[in-house]
Amino acid sequence: MSELKLLVQEYEIPGGSLEEKWELLQEVGFHGIELHGRDQQFAERLPELQKAAAAGVPMPSVCLISEQFIGDWDAEVRATAVANMKTLLSTIAAVGGTGAITPAAFGLFSKALPPFTSPRSVEGDREVLLEALAELGEHAGREGVAVYLEPLNRYEDHMLNKLHQAVSLIEELGSPHVKVMADTFHMNIEEDDIPASLLRTGTLLGHVHLADSQRSHPGSGHTDFAGIAAALRSMEFDGHLAMECGIRGDKKESLKQVSALFNG
């Protein structure tokens, strides 16, 4: 049975340089590092990332860190968000990665909180997301990587909360370079059955974020990671699973426990 490929986001890994962080991750059974991408500043890190890649550090993915998102109300902000994502996609491609992660938006609006009614229609939301994703999908295709589209929970976004909503957008878009990014923390809030939702997503699932029910490391809360791992294996998922969460206790020991949870 093949291993599930585990990553940790860079700022949760002990060590100074990416090379030092990778040395520790190899000891605890992980497979690489997920990077943080701060808008246009991410490109400035290219020499550092190329040096790490030359030393054998796997850096498959980058997660957007930004205040601008592709689903913003304002067209200029959306254009900036698309430009920032293109930077992430090109930079991660330059170091042999697979893709860059973005939600539709973060903290823009929630239908679960007052005033409850969005200033833009559902159809309007869909239109702006399809426009941005079409442009990003073309760019990702040229770079040989993918856009990973992440649904967030209802308190953090109003456009995409469940995997099937992202699937619907991507199917309409028709781009092979845009995939679904599943986050187990958000799914714990939104999905009735996390393993079943992963299975339904099928080949459109490109990447997974791992966090337990309280946003700490897998195994520290009540999320059924055994069921999640079984579902991913049954669908022969060959993408990466990146820890996007806090790590309680001794980090090295906790990472060993996470590795054993998925590949023990």
Rank of each mutant, 00 (worst) to 15 (best):
12 E>Y: 09
141 G>S: 07
110 S>E: 07
263 N>V: 02
36 H>V: 10
54 A>V: 10
116 F>L: 05
41 Q>L: 15
168 S>I: 04
91 T>G: 05
146 A>C: 15
217 H>L: 13
227 G>F: 08
9 Q>W: 10
160 L>D: 01
225 F>T: 12
176 P>Q: 07
1 M>Y: 04
201 T>C: 15
250 D>W: 06
93 A>V: 12
140 A>V: 00
228 I>D: 07
20 E>Y: 00
186 H>A: 03
82 V>E: 07
188 N>W: 10
118 S>D: 14
175 S>T: 09
216 S>W: 15
217 H>F: 14
59 M>Y: 03
119 P>A: 12
47 P>D: 02
30 F>L: 06
99 G>R: 04
165 Q>P: 01
83 A>C: 14
257 Q>W: 12
173 L>W: 08
71 G>R: 06
97 G>D: 10
3 E>K: 15
121 S>P: 07
53 A>W: 03
212 D>V: 12
101 I>Q: 06
167 V>G: 02
81 A>C: 05
96 G>I: 04
241 L>G: 11
31 H>N: 05
57 V>L: 10
11 Y>R: 13
132 A>M: 02
208 V>W: 06
89 L>E: 11
214 Q>P: 02
233 R>P: 05
174 G>A: 11
1 M>C: 07
252 K>T: 15
13 I>M: 11
241 L>E: 07
197 S>M: 03
24 L>P: 06
59 M>F: 01
8 V>L: 07
153 N>S: 11
162 K>G: 02
123 E>P: 10
248 R>L: 14
151 P>L: 03
156 E>L: 08
16 G>F: 03
121 S>I: 08
186 H>P: 04
197 S>A: 15
43 A>D: 12
97 G>S: 02
3 E>W: 14
94 A>N: 05
209 H>D: 13
251 K>C: 00
3 E>G: 12
103 P>C: 03
75 A>F: 14
161 N>W: 02
38 R>M: 08
140 A>M: 01
52 A>R: 03
100 A>F: 00
27 E>Y: 06
181 M>E: 15
87 T>L: 13
184 T>D: 00
146 A>S: 15
97 G>K: 01
183 D>Q: 04
250 D>Q: 09
126 R>D: 04
15 G>P: 06
147 V>K: 11
171 E>Q: 14
17 S>R: 02
